[in-house]
């Protein structure tokens, strides 16, 4: 691990000024991603700014039924918080299906949004990777790509976004609250992540020195009736091969509003507004769900080992929708 200077800060503004003034500085919260990547020399900050003393831990109700989650709330706290369990079950489920209890006790919500890909070539400094070392090439496209992305890819990068929570929050219109050297701003989570294009090293719109303060979840009928389904190679403690976060508001037998996002298949949490449009106004039936699933994967570009993800993701989405539709009303 490269040597770094460590400092602890007690005010968000100080943290932002410290990091924005040092190109090689990084914030650290839980550290479950950063320390891991520093140990294998994929992340090499010269300065690490500990933000755990900042007052960003609360989970509070917002007027109108939404919830604001402080960036330093731990995954385990959010997963079992009554406001999340009741108002945003897909978020709670996604968190409980993430990582392990020990990691969830340590990892923060803001850090979870910033977790890096698990692409094996990104983690191996002996091999080319455009995300880690721009211009060096992509080892994954012609390599071991079974777990890698089929949506949002480019000829430079097919690394999968590893998140579960971010998929559920992308489906449910989460808003990221950010503080930077030039002030505060908010970004919709679906716009927070960017596809790799020709710059796979850039994963979010967050500028250097900008700090996530909180995530807002707006209340909605399709949020209160939402579900997260994760398919993986072993029963627990594993990243998604495919996953689906869905929300449905069904009145009578007609779908009034729908939310769909896919995980394990995209270079970013993959919200499909096309699939949502194929659901709204239609009967909540198997045929509707299958049609929406086909639309959700229509832009998929598989590589040598991961074409199976297209039907698997479609079935994951159909099953998640069926689970919700079969759940009453």
């Amino acid at each position: 691990m490269r040597a770094f200077n460590y400092s602890k800060t007690r005010a968000a503004g100080d943290a932002v000024m410290t990091v924005s003034g040092q190109p090689e500085a990084k914030f650290i919260a839980g550290g479950t991603t950063l320390v891991d990547l520093m140990r294998i020399n994929v992340e090499t900050p010269a300065q690490v700014v500990d933000i755990n003393a900042l007052p960003l831990k609360t989970i509070q109700a917002l007027p109108g039924g939404g919830v604001r989650i402080g960036a330093l709330a731990r995954m385990s706290e959010v997963a079992e918080h009554p406001l999340i369990v009741q108002g945003f079950p897909a978020v709670s489920q996604a968190l409980l299906l993430s990582a392990s209890p020990q990691l969830r006790n340590k990892a923060s919500i803001g850090g979870n949004l910033m977790q890096r890909t698990r692409c094996p070539y990104f983690r191996d400094t002996a091999l080319p990777c455009n995300k880690r070392e721009p211009g060096s090439g992509c080892s994954a496209i012609g390599g071991e790509n079974r777990m890698l992305a089929i949506l949002g890819t480019s000829e430079n990068c097919i690394a999968t976004n590893a998140g579960d929570m971010a998929v559920s929050m992308s489906a449910l219109d989460a808003v990221v609250r950010i503080r930077g050297p030039k002030g505060d701003r908010t970004v919709n989570l679906v716009d927070f992540y960017v596809v790799p294009g020709s710059t796979p090293n850039i994963e979010t719109v967050l500028q250097h020195g900008e700090l996530i303060l909180a995530i807002d979840l707006p209340a909605a009928p399709h949020a209160a009736r939402s579900h997260y389904l994760k398919v993986r190679d072993r029963a627990s403690y594993e990243f998604a091969v495919t996953s689906a976060a869905v929300g449905l508001d069904v009145q009578g037998s007609t779908i009034r509003s729908a939310r769909v996002a896919l995980g394990g298949v995209g270079t970013k949490p993959w919200r499909s507004k096309e699939a949502e449009a194929a659901l709204v106004g239609r009967p909540a039936t198997e045929a509707t769900f299958v049609a929406a699933a086909q639309i959700a994967l229509s832009g998929a570009k598989p590589r040598s080992q991961n074409a199976f993800k297209i039907p698997l993701a479609q079935r994951t989405l159909v099953k998640a929708l069926r689970t919700l539709a079969g759940g009453g009303s």
């Binding site: 460590y6 650290i28 550290g31 479950t32 320390v35 891991d36 140990r39 294998i40 690490v48 500990d50 755990n52 392990s100 209890p101 020990q102 990691l103 006790n105 340590k106």
Partner: peptide, 26 residues
Amino acid sequence: NQGACGACTVYVDGVRINACLALTVM
């Protein structure tokens, strides 16, 4: 030593975590 196995599980202030991914200074 990368948070994948749990052999290093300890309690910090009563809560179980992976000690390998914790910097002591924090």
